[in-house]
Each structure stands twice: as structure tokens, then as C-alpha cells.
């Protein structure tokens, strides 16, 4: 009896297996590098339902936070390269090596899609005694250490923007550290800090509501979401060489994942990123859609790493030189 049953199950298993063997044959685990409610989380949770539809499978999303995302990255890199673990990440891993946070970065991954790029913006509290970038520099020079800049630890967007500023005109300000641009912008509205380099998406509603004001948009062209914000190159063209620059969001799998799986996922996310409501969400939050994959994405990542790693190296923020890891000078 048992034997018969076993035989039957086995036969059933054998007949159903080939039908299932096509990827994805089970739930895919999606690891988000940042906490729930953050911008990486929002972006990934918004695009994934569209990608699931195109893929014909389900992706279980899960936030694995800590160590500026290094824990999530290591979890995926230590798993199997079978396409059942996807990493939803931001730009941070490209600086892990120089920041001494680990020896793995996106070079150990295959990019599925680099979805979008954020635009940095310098904002100030509404009653700050300056309105434009040159005025701010003049004020800082006249009142050394008086102006309080928000910061978020070396390697984050604020530190990179500050490094850019320092490279052009060294400034003497007090840096008050926060654990993300959300809390820092809250502090800005309460007057605890004066100026904050942030990503446009996090500041846009505050600017529109008048709880903070724009000093300069760190991009070469004006933003469609906030057309009246002056670009930094309109007053200080010397920044042109460093821009455009910005944090980005990407979908990755471990290197060595079978080509057909990569192709399927790439197609799915390429399709998902084209969805109208997703594009509307990204535009509304001031992100620039990129939706690139394959060699184009690889090239983007390599260029980003080289620019940024050397920028923070020159600002003296690194624990090890980019040269040690073969990251070329831009």
C-alpha cells in the first residue's frame, strides 16, 4: 500500500516537474537594503508588483537593514546564484570597500535594472539669512563655524555633496550628524540645523509647503518636478564637471546567476519600470527615471564608483584608497 502510494507520488512528481522547471518555480525572495518607509523601500515596493505581473511569479519583499545595507548585500552574496534571491539596493555598496565596510560590492552582482537616480538639492530653513548659493558662501565666510550643516555620516549623499562644495570652496561650518535625510530635514524645520544637502524627493513637499527653501539644485538642468529651483551651475559653473551625480536605486542578482534567469528578470523589471503609475510616482518625487540594464548599467555603476570614491577620498573621508581596489581615477 505504502509502496503504491509512494510510486504514485513519485510519478505525479515526475510528471509535474518539467512543467514547473521553468523559472520562477517558487516564490522569489526580495531583500530590500533599507528600512520600511524609506525611499528605496517605497520605490521597490512600487515597481515590484508590475514586475511580478510581467514575470508571472511572486516576489516576497523583506527589509534587511543595518550596516548601511551591508548586511543585506552579504546575505544575498552568500546565498545561491539561482535567481531566487534579489537584492534591492541603493548606491551605498559602491563605497563599502573604501569605507572599510566589507570587501563585497556591486561588482559581485549582475545588475537587473538601475531604475532611477535622485537629484541632490541644498535646502535651508526658511528664515536662514541667505537665499542663493553665493550668498550662503559669503555668509559662511563671514561667520565661520556658525552655520550648522546636517550630515549623515561619511559616504552618504550629504557627505558627497559637502565634499563637492569643499573641493571648490572650502567652508568652515559645524556638521551635526543625523541618521538619514528624513530626520535631518525634520531637524531643519525645527531650526536645529540651518542647511542640509538632501535628495530632492525627500525635500520637495517641504519646499512646496514653505517649511524649507532651496539654495541650489545640484544638477546640470532644472527639475521638472520643481522648475523654479535654481541649478548650481547657473551660479557656479565650476560644478559642471562633477555633475550630474546622484544616488540611485537598482535591482541586482548575484553574479553567476544563469543567463536565462537574468534575461527574464531584466525583461520583467524593464517592463515594470515602464508602468505609468510608477513613472508618475518617480516624477512626483523628483527622481529621474533611468531604466537601464545590461552593459549600460554596468558602465553607469563603474563610472559612479570611480567619481564618488575619488571624491570622498580627496575629502579625506575614506578608510582605504580607491586605488587599493583597482578603482580608476576619473
Amino acid at each position: 500500500m505504502i509502496r503504491k502510494l509512494l510510486g504514485a507520488t513519485l510519478a505525479l512528481g515526475l510528471t509535474t516537474l518539467p512543467a514547473l522547471a521553468e523559472y520562477p518555480e517558487k516564490e522569489i525572495q526580495g531583500i530590500i537594503q533599507w528600512g520600511a518607509g524609506g525611499s528605496t523601500d517605497t520605490v521597490m515596493r512600487a515597481v515590484t508588483p508590475h514586475a511580478e505581473k510581467a514575470l508571472g511569479g511572486s516576489i516576497v519583499m523583506q527589509n534587511v537593514t543595518g550596516g548601511v545595507g551591508a548586511i543585506a548585500l552579504n546575505q544575498v552574496v552568500n546565498g545561491d546564484a539561482d535567481g531566487y534571491q534579489i537584492l534591492f539596493g541603493a548606491e551605498n555598496p559602491l563605497l563599502y570597500k573604501v569605507m572599510g565596510l566589507g570587501d563585497k560590492d556591486y561588482n559581485d552582482f549582475t545588475p537587473i535594472n538601475v531604475l532611477a537616480r535622485g537629484v541632490p538639492i541644498l535646502v535651508a530653513r526658511p528664515d536662514a539669512p541667505f537665499n542663493t548659493y553665493p550668498e550662503m558662501i559669503a555668509y559662511i565666510n563671514a561667520h565661520p563655524r556658525d552655520v550648522k550643516f546636517g550630515s549623515t555620516g561619511p559616504g552618504g549623499l550629504p557627505s558627497v555633496v559637502t565634499a563637492m562644495i569643499n573641493q571648490k570652496t572650502p567652508i568652515d561650518v559645524t556638521f551635526v550628524p543625523y541618521d538619514g535625510d528624513g530626520p535631518a530635514l525634520t531637524a531643519l524645520q525645527g531650526g536645529a540645523i540651518d542647511v542640509m544637502p538632501a535628495v530632492l524627493g525627500a525635500a520637495i513637499e517641504g519646499i512646496k509647503g514653505g517649511t524649507m527653501k532651496t539654495i541650489a539644485l545640484f544638477d546640470v538642468e532644472a527639475s521638472e518636478a520643481l522648475p523654479e529651483a535654481p541649478t548650481i551651475v547657473s551660479t557656479n559653473p565650476e560644478f559642471g564637471a562633477l555633475l550630474p551625480w546622484g544616488p540611485f536605486f537598482g535591482v541586482f542578482v548575484k553574479k553567476g546567476t544563469p543567463d536565462d534567469v537574468v534575461a527574464k528578470l531584466t525583461a520583467a523589471y524593464g517592463e515594470g519600470a515602464k508602468a505609468d503609475d510608477f513613472k508618475a510616482l518617480m516624477d512626483g518625487r523628483g527622481f529621474k527615471m533611468m531604466n537601464i540594464s545590461g552593459a549600460e548599467a554596468q558602465a553607469f555603476l563603474a563610472k559612479w564608483q570611480s567619481t564618488t570614491a575619488w571624491l570622498v577620498q580627496d575629502a579625506g573621508l575614506t578608510k582605504a584608497s580607491p586605488a587599493d581596489f583597482g578603482i580608476p581615477k576619473p
Binding site: T16, A19, L20, E25, K26, E27, Q29, V60, Q62
Partner: peptide, 21 residues
């Protein structure tokens, strides 16, 4: 709650998918 526990020797992911199919 879709908490993915280690499957180990029981291929539960595939079984669930098969049931779903």
C-alpha cells in the same frame, strides 16, 4: 505573513507553487 523560513529537506516552496498551479 510570508516569512520565508529555511525549507531544508522539505521542498515547501515548490509544493506551495504546485498547489497554487
Amino acid at each position: 505573513f510570508s516569512v520565508l523560513m529555511p525549507a531544508g529537506i522539505v521542498p515547501e516552496g515548490e509544493i506551495l507553487a504546485a498547489i497554487g498551479h
